[in-house]
């Protein structure tokens, strides 16, 4: 980094840093709290909304994994359509798509890993939905004018309040749809049902699963 660089570069560097500084200052919770009262609830609402979008992405991802497994592998996890020419092509392009190469070389392992990935995503989706539900319930309580500790109601403007109510309704509706979608996926793919598998370990009155 020579100090004899063109002046515009130095200006660009300084202005970029200044921009970050100003943005950082404005986003400080203390500053935002003064600028926007009711910040806590707005933020909770925003996070719940964002998380619901994340759930949507997760469900799409799970669907894509399962579709891929359905099309590419048989029930024992072996690849349906192998072929030497295809292998060579994949080998030639290994740097472009290394996971695909693994998939072709080790189909059984890939099948299991992808299924496990889908299971993990299902767990995360369940967790997210539980989290969103709790947040929306808390928001409902806070927005209820009849409840004395309805903190958000007193801090938000009338339009802000109605907007917040609309949003919570929207999030609630979407979460209901997502839950249905998740249930459908779990029904189609019994291998994904991970939450109630260890009942057998409870028969003797012990909390014991593993020998």
């Amino acid at each position: 980094m020579s100090s004899k660089s063109p002046r515009w570069r130095k200006v660009l560097l300084a202005s970029g840093l200044m921009l970050v500084l100003v943005q950082g200052l404005v986003r400080l919770p203390e500053v935002r709290g003064r600028l926007f009262p009711g910040l806590f609830w707005e933020q909770k609402l925003h996070l719940a909304q964002k998380e619901s979008l994340r759930v949507e992405r997760r469900l799409r991802y799970i669907g894509a994994i399962l579709e891929e497994l359905n099309e590419t592998f048989d029930q024992d996890g072996f690849q349906i359509t192998p072929g030497p020419f295809k292998e060579l092509l994949v080998l030639a392009q290994w740097w472009v798509n290394l996971p695909e190469l693994w998939g072709r070389l080790l189909p059984k392992m890939t099948y299991e890993t992808k299924l496990r990935l889908a299971q993990k995503e299902c767990i995360d989706t369940e967790r997210s939905l539980k989290n969103i539900n709790a947040t929306v319930e808390a928001l409902d309580r806070a927005l209820d004018p009849k409840v004395p500790q309805g903190a958000a109601g007193s801090l938000l403007t009338a339009s802000g309040l109605s907007q917040a109510r609309d949003l919570t309704q929207d999030i609630r509706r979407r979460c209901w749809e997502y839950r249905q979608e998740l249930q459908n996926l779990l029904q189609k793919w019994p291998e994904l049902k991970v939450s109630q598998d260890n009942k057998a370990g409870l028969k003797s009155g012990e909390i014991i699963v593993r020998p």
Binding site: R116, E126, S195, Q196, D197, N198, K199, L202, I207
Partner: peptide, 15 residues
């Protein structure tokens, strides 16, 4: 809620 490494619900929760 917590799940174990095998992605089963943890035993204490299931119990």
């Amino acid at each position: 809620t917590r799940w174990n490494r095998d992605l089963n619900l943890i035993s204490s929760e299931a119990f």
